[in-house]
Design a binder for these strands. Structure first.
Length: 1150
RNA sequence: GGGCUUGUAGCUCAGGUGGUUAGAGCGCGACACUGAUAAUGUCGAGGUCCGUGGUUCGAGUCCACGCAGGCCCA
């Protein structure tokens, strides 16, 4: 047997078998090796972390990656894809802590850093086996033999090298960020620690609405028009729940589009006249309605409980920008840096709301993250002091006390909770916030002081409130190259585009410096050593580290212990069994040129730097593989989830742009999420997560991949419904398998073999053959275009529609007769016609296997091999088409333009439409297809349509079981025409008069329609004026043939003669008879090739006549050698129901 | 709160540059076929195109404002 036939095909089994085949024959390796020397297509693998188990969304993400790599391989590119593992970072640490039942506090106490990191190293690869297993089973081709692993020394060395390059360019610097900090514990808190339950507690704080005095109001336009402005004491109101930050105030932030008002009133504590600025929406919060436009003159004499007030002016926040005010608590003057502007000004910020407060935010860059950001963006300096080493520090020390420069409160804790219980319980005790409130009231700088209850974060260790506090951090100065990064981004092809221009583009536009520092244990150490005297080195390689170590040892400035650690490490470096992680590198002490010892900055770097550096570090560049790197940079293609936009996509882009003035990737597909079928996020906790292993073992990898890819475009979220996979399996894979089996069944019966040299020339094949080949070539073109456009969804849908609608439902169905025509046994050999049919179908199927192979690699392989294995040896010998062992080693099919016949495609479309219309009429009149009818009438208004229909007439006739097609021409006089306005052309001409014109056109008489057809134009008279209509402004269709049954759709009309003549009736009965005999054959278990003898009991003259007069036809159809009518069958007959007869018949194999 | 994104039939999705009657598959109903048969085909029912305004002769499509979901960031 040449083509394997399959009963009860199991898709998971195909997966297993093909996987084994790939392994045995090393097909993946071959798919790379056979492209040696060809242009490369570079793909970067975004490394997953193997410390968790893979989920169904990984199948999705990796299918996308796999698809384009396979596609480009088919296109002839060499596509190397190195796998990788992300191994550092917080999730690993957390998992280890969970497993060991410890917290970060235990590190260095109950467990050494050394042991802790060792545990991380083991844990991080914990599920590697599962990942590898899934990778194989889902058919993701990636090199797992030699993956990059981010914790390896080579990898880290590359990172150090990149950091050194940044450092040398002055792009790596030490600054600070505002982070949650616990003075009681003396440590910063991660966002994870801040999200722990119980962290936020309701506390009652003293809050102050402070009054910031505007200097020289009349110089500002916004106040300029106010009468008597020079006499006003204008104060901007700003509310704070942390009064202790007021001495550090250096700006006020307002919302650009928020409405503010200037309100004339009195200071509620000093009763001095004043005019205050606050958000309009919040006026009601501070002023009672009774006081509006109240008695100003009589206020002094009143009990002063009711403040009179009146609105003097209203303006937008943006009108206030730049206004200067007097420093509220002038203990310390800001040091103005080179890029700074003066402090104590009004600036704009997007985080301002009118939910509470005054709509003006008191801004102290050292004690608020928003404050810091907005201040930096506006060049506002911070209020800082210098410590004993001349280093700038905030006005609150690390224990939470004011520094000495804040004379009134020097040494006081800013939060009462930092005092001991005893101190707090002293009746004389006043929290610092209260002292500040009193002082401001006395100075006439407070508008309102009150207690306010709100949630505030607390340190989970000490239970004391957290401060937002500036902590040292290392930064990459991404802002310095922002413009270039924006430029480079414009050259990247983003799918979808909006991620690139929107999410990513906006992110670049609003870029801040990249904070590299992480206070952790398991990660890449920052390779910077420094002392307290301004000396600093950045180590860029292991070689350098050796040199520095040697220098340090020779310097004589090390203690005994330091020298011991250093020489120990140096020895390890020399032997190659070193570890660049903590704690080992922490013990290295270097010595500066002027003889000071330098310690490593204790930070680790952001893991995103690890992954963003993979283009270089995966090859241990620049220490090794320079050539490979140069060939494979930048990447042609990457793909990850859209959530990576500010993660991996950014870090890749930033490093490439800053160090190599290049993009890191040219094309990127950012993928959406995989949700459950109800659109909820999948999570193990909710139990709605789908197990990828189970899915693949149940449905096989191909249906799973096909479903995920064709159901939604990659960047849309996918609502994953397992039933959808079943549907894809039945609909697409089932149909395709059936189609193949159909081919195999008859090809084997006929002993068909493919010989390229003697194949039937395309031009001498049938209409249907040429049509499907034309469709096929169109398909190749379109699928290629979609893959080129990185749209696998559209590509897959095109293939699927071709297979189900065109190939199976039209080509195969209409050609069945050709295939089962028993030419071989009747001694004719394989006729030219049959051969053409096999060749056409086989070619279609092989091509389909290629087109679908990127998406469904296993099934495509199975299909390809089933179709071509038998021809392999000959093909190799003759260097012809089917020489490749695997579909994945073939080359993308060439588009044979000469085989594309769009006119024929249109013809066939007409045939399909006409057939459908006839079926519809038959249906409406309960005329089953088996009853032949005599005539279809098709009105045609153009010669082209007529010719196109004529080309496929025979196909239509067989499909709908009608004897003839007749065309009704325009001049026959029996057509009834309908005229419709063509709005597209009429629109520009008539515009507003459209309704009138459309009405006039619809009302045209038969004569007028003839007129416009003849002369190409006509003048119509509407109510207002005569109008000129051209033939192109209307659409004329023949929609009715009076006296006939008619159906029409889209301008195509079909009329059907439903008269059943006696002759047709007999023929119908004969067909019915054939049908019953066929059933009987099948029920009796005869072989398809068996010849039979039929004996029919003559008990009805109509039936007898029908059978006799169609005897030849019947015999041929049911392969009867003999058909006889007898008087009585003596009970040997089978009784079968026909519509109106009781059939008594006997069949036997001859 | 901000940026991006999605909303069309019971479900999953199509619907260049606006053109009047909005499509497909599944599901559902009916029928046909019975030599692709645990297949297959045909026909049918099913829609306030998230809402409200606006632009236009004409809006599923363009604009504005909302509502609901998603992601990222605060």
């Amino acid at each position: 047997m040449k083509y394997n036939e399959y009963k009860n095909l199991s898709y998971p089994q195909i997966g297993d078998e093909v996987l084994q085949f790939w392994k045995d024959k090393k097909i993946f390796e071959a798919s790379v090796d056979t492209r040696e020397g060809a242009p490369t297509f570079t793909f970067f693998e975004g490394p997953p972390s193997a410390n968790g188990t893979p989920g169904i969304h990984h199948v999705m993400a990796r299918s996308i990656k796999d698809i384009f790599c396979r596609y480009k391989t088919l296109q002839g590119f060499q596509v190397k894809r190195k796998g990788g593992w992300d191994t550092h970072g917080l999730p690993v640490e957390l998992q280890v802590e969970k497993e060991l039942g410890i917290t970060k506090d235990d590190i260095g106490k109950t467990i050494s850093v050394e042991d802790y990191n060792e545990k991380c190293r083991q844990t991080v690869m914990k599920f590697t086996d599962q990942w590898n297993d899934l990778t194989e089973k889902m058919g993701y081709w990636v090199d797992l033999e030699d993956p990059y692993i981010t914790y390896k020394s080579e990898y880290i060395e590359s990172l150090w090298n990149l950091l050194k390059r940044l450092y040398d360019k002055g792009l790596l610097y030490k600054g600070y960020t505002i982070q949650p900090y616990s003075p009681a514990a003396g440590t910063g808190l991660s966002s994870h620690e801040l999200n722990m339950p119980g962290t936020y507690k309701d506390v009652k704080d003293t809050t102050i609405v402070a009054m910031f005095k505007v200097t020289t109001p009349k110089t500002y336009q916004v106040f300029g028009n106010i009468a008597g402005v020079e006499d006003l004491d204008i104060r901007i109101l700003a509310w704070t729940t942390t009064p202790w930050t007021l001495p550090a105030n250096s700006a006020l932030t307002v919302g650009a589009n928020i409405n503010y008002v200037l309100v004339k009133t009195f200071n509620p504590y000093t009763y001095e006249p004043v005019a205050v600025v606050l958000a309009k929406d919040l006026v009601g919060k501070y002023f009672s309605e009774k006081g509006q436009d109240g008695d100003f003159d009589g206020f002094a004499a009143s009990d002063k409980k009711l403040l009179p007030w009146t609105i003097l002016a209203e303006f937008k926040g943006k009108d206030l920008e730049g206004i200067a005010y007097e420093q509220l608590m002038p203990y310390i003057q800001p040091t103005i840096g080179p890029s700074d502007k003066p402090a104590f000004r009004v600036i704009l910020g997007d985080f301002v709301t009118t939910e509470d407060g005054t709509g003006v935010v008191h801004t102290s860059p050292t004690f608020g993250a928003d404050d810091f950001r907005v201040a930096q963006a506006n060049g506002i300096p911070a209020i800082m002091v210098k410590d004993e080493n001349g280093k700038e520090v905030p006005i609150v020390d690390r224990r939470g006390r004011f520094v000495k420069e804040i004379t009134d409160y020097a040494g006081r804790f800013v939060k009462p909770e930092y005092y001991s219980d005893e101190e707090q319980n002293d009746p004389e005790f006043r929290p610092t916030d209260v002292l500040i409130a009193i002082k401001l009231k006395e100075e006439g700088k407070a508008f309102k002081v009150e207690k306010y209850e709100h949630p505030y974060p607390h340190c989970w260790r000490t239970d004391k409130p957290v401060l937002y506090y500036p902590l040292d951090s290392w930064f990459i100065k991404t802002t310095a190259l922002k413009d270039r990064l924006v430029e480079l981004n414009k050259t990247i092809n983003w799918k979808p585009e909006s991620t690139g221009t929107g999410r990513f583009g906006n992110w670049l536009e609003n870029l801040v410096d990249w904070n590299l520092s992480r206070s952790r244990y398991w990660g890449t150490p920052l390779p910077i050593w420094r002392d307290d005297y301004g000396n600093e080195v950045c180590v860029g390689s292991i070689e350098e580290l050796k040199d520095f170590l040697e220098e340090a040892l020779l310097s004589g400035h090390l203690t005994k212990e330091q020298a011991f650690h250093n020489s120990e490490y140096l020895l390890k470096l020399q032997h190659g069994d070193f570890d660049l992680h903590r704690p080992y590198v922490d013990n290295i002490v270097l010595v500066s040129k002027d003889g000071h010892v330098m310690h490593r900055e204790p930070d680790l770097i952001d893991v995103w730097f690890d992954s963003g550096a993979m283009p270089y570090a995966q090859w241990h560049y620049p220490f090794e593989n320079q050539e490979i790197f140069n060939q494979s940079y930048p990447a042609d293609f990457i793909s990850e989830g859209v959530d990576q936009t500010r993660g991996w996509f950014f870090t890749l882009h930033a490093i490439a742009g800053m160090l190599f003035d290049s993009v890191a990737f040219k094309n990127v597909v950012s993928t959406g999420l995989v949700l459950d079928k109800n659109g909820n996020k999948m999570s193990k906790r909710l139990g709605n997560a789908v197990d990828p292993f189970q899915t693949i073992s149940q449905y096989g990898p191909d249906a799973t991949r096909w479903y995920m890819i064709t159901n939604a475009e990659p960047w849309d979220n996918l609502k994953f419904n397992i039933d959808g996979i079943g549907e894809v399996q039945r609909k697409f894979f089932g149909t395709l398998t059936n189609t193949y089996n159909f081919f195999a069944l008859y090809a084997n019966l006929d002993g068909y073999e493919f010989h390229e040299a003697t194949s039937v020339p395309v031009e001498s094949r049938t209409e249907l053959d040429r049509w499907i080949l034309s469709k096929l070539n169109t398909l190749i073109k379109e699928v290629g275009e979609q893959f080129d456009d990185y749209n696998p969804t559209k590509a897959g849908r095109l293939v699927q529609d071709f297979v189900t609608d065109q190939l199976s439902n039209w080509y195969i169905r209409l050609n069945r007769r050709r295939f089962w025509n028993p030419s071989q046994e009747s001694g004719q050999g394989l006729t030219e016609d049959k051969k053409a049919a096999y060749e056409t179908l086989q070619h279609c199927l092989v091509t389909v296997s290629q087109l679908m192979s990127p998406i469904a690699p296993f099934f495509a392989e199975w299909l390809y091999k089933s179709l071509t294995d038998g021809d392999r040896a000959a093909s190799i010998a003759n260097n012809t088409g089917y020489q490749f062992d695997s579909v994945h080693l073939t080359y993308w099919p060439k588009i044979e333009s000469s085989e594309i016949d769009l006119d024929l495609e249109e013809s066939m479309e007409l045939a399909q439409k006409i057939s459908s219309l006839v079926h519809s009429i038959r249906k409406g009149h309960k005329l089953k297809v088996r009853q032949p009818l005599s005539k279809i009438l098709i009105p045609v208004l153009s010669d082209k349509t007529k010719r196109q229909i004529e080309q496929v007439t025979s196909i239509i006739l067989t499909e709908v079981n009608v004897k003839t097609v007749e065309f009704v021409h325009d001049d026959s006089g029996i057509l009834k025409k309908k005229i419709k306005p063509n709005f597209k052309t009429l629109g520009p001409k008539f515009g507003p008069k459209m309704k009138e014109v459309a009405g006039a056109i619809s009302a045209m008489t038969e004569t007028e329609i003839k007129d416009i057809e003849r002369s190409g134009a006509i003048t119509l008279h509407t109510a207002s004026s005569p109008i000129e209509i051209a033939i192109s402004d209307v659409e004329i269709i023949a929609e009715d043939v009076p006296g006939w049954l008619v159906a029409s759709e889209g301008g195509l009309t079909v009329a059907l003669d439903i008269t059943v003549t006696d002759e047709l009736r007999l023929e119908g009965i004969a067909r019915d008879f054939v049908n019953r005999v066929q059933n009987l054959r099948k029920d009796s278990g005869f072989e398809v090739t068996d010849k039979i003898r039929i004996t029919l009991q003559n008990n009805d003259s109509l039936l007898a006549t029908a059978v006799t007069s169609n005897k030849e036809y019947i015999c041929q159809e049911v392969q009867a050698l003999n058909l006889s009518l007898v008087g009585d069958l003596n009970g040997e007959a089978k009784e079968i129901e026909m519509d109106e007869f009781l059939l008594k018949v006997k069949i036997e194999v001859v």
